[in-house]
Simulated assay, not measured.
Amino acid sequence: MQDSSNFIKDFIDKQGLFYNWLDSRRFEIGPFLMTRLSFLLDGKSFIVITDDERIWFEEYFLNLVNSKSTRPLVPFFSLKGFKLDNYDKNEDLLDDLLNIAFPDGYVYFYVGKDNSKMAKLAKSKDNSLLFIFDEEYDNSFCIKSNDEHKDIKLITIAQLINVCIDGIIFSRVKI
């Protein structure tokens, strides 16, 4: 069993050029990811939400994370079926619904800009997994929206998360 820093370093080293940017930030992303992903062991579910510009990421990630035939399905879900345009008027109702649907708890996994409705929703829970563009917060990971490689970086983050889930589920990494 490896510590999370070496586990992530080994993954980055095996992947090649597009993952080099992660190496310089692995001490930032590693503890952040492992802390949040450890909630899987507590039976918590993850609700993946994005701003409007990154809806593609939600679909990509959900397809990626549950496409492996070598591990059990993992509890990552979307709120796509819900009409959330006016959720802020019914925040308590949404929270009640999610608490009923996920009795062991849930974690928001948000990717997007800070000024979206979905960002407000994700920031309403302290344990959210936040990838925020252009803003730095405690317990979040910042990506610059003017970075020409931001989409590639999101894909590499998704693949890193997927590998970390394997590591956690199969006890290959110390949390």
Rank of each mutant, 00 (worst) to 15 (best):
G43K: 02
G43A: 04
K44N: 07
F46W: 03
F46V: 00
F46P: 08
V48T: 07
V48Y: 06
I49H: 08
T50S: 12
T50E: 06
D52C: 11
D52H: 13
E53G: 06
R54Y: 11
R54Q: 07
R54L: 03
I55W: 10
W56F: 14
E58Y: 07
E58K: 14
Y60V: 01
N63H: 04
L64T: 02
V65E: 05
V65C: 11
N66G: 09
S67A: 08
S69V: 10
T70I: 02
T70N: 14
T70E: 08
T70Y: 14
P72Q: 04
P72A: 07
P72F: 09
L73H: 14
P75D: 06
P75E: 08
P75N: 10
S78E: 06
S78F: 02
L79F: 01
L79P: 05
K80N: 10
K80S: 11
K80D: 07
K83F: 14
L84Y: 06
L84Q: 05
D85S: 08
D85Q: 05
N86M: 09
N86T: 07
D88N: 15
D88R: 15
D88M: 10
K89R: 12
N90D: 13
N90C: 12
N90L: 12
N90K: 14
D92T: 15
L93G: 00
L93C: 00
L93H: 13
L94Q: 14
L94V: 13
L94G: 07
L94F: 05
L94Y: 12
D95G: 05
D95C: 02
L97H: 13
L98F: 01
A101C: 01
A101F: 08
P103W: 01
P103I: 01
D104S: 13
D104P: 07
G105Y: 05
G105N: 02
Y106E: 00
V107C: 03
V107G: 01
V107S: 01
Y108Q: 03
F109P: 03
Y110F: 15
V111I: 08
D114W: 08
N115A: 04
K117Q: 12
A119V: 03
A119I: 01
A119T: 03
K120L: 11
L121T: 02
L121W: 09
L121A: 03
A122R: 00
A122S: 09
A122H: 11
K123S: 12
K125A: 05
K125L: 01
D126M: 09
N127L: 01
N127C: 07
S128T: 06
L130P: 00
L130K: 07
L130F: 04
F131R: 05
F131W: 06
F131Y: 10
I132F: 01
F133T: 07
D134K: 11
D134R: 06
D134E: 05
E135W: 03
E135H: 14
E136K: 15
E136F: 08
N139S: 13
N139F: 12
S140W: 03
F141R: 06
C142I: 13
I143V: 15
I143T: 00
I143A: 01
K144W: 10
S145K: 11
S145C: 07
N146P: 04
N146V: 02
E148F: 15
H149T: 14
K150F: 09
D151Y: 13
D151Q: 11
I152R: 01
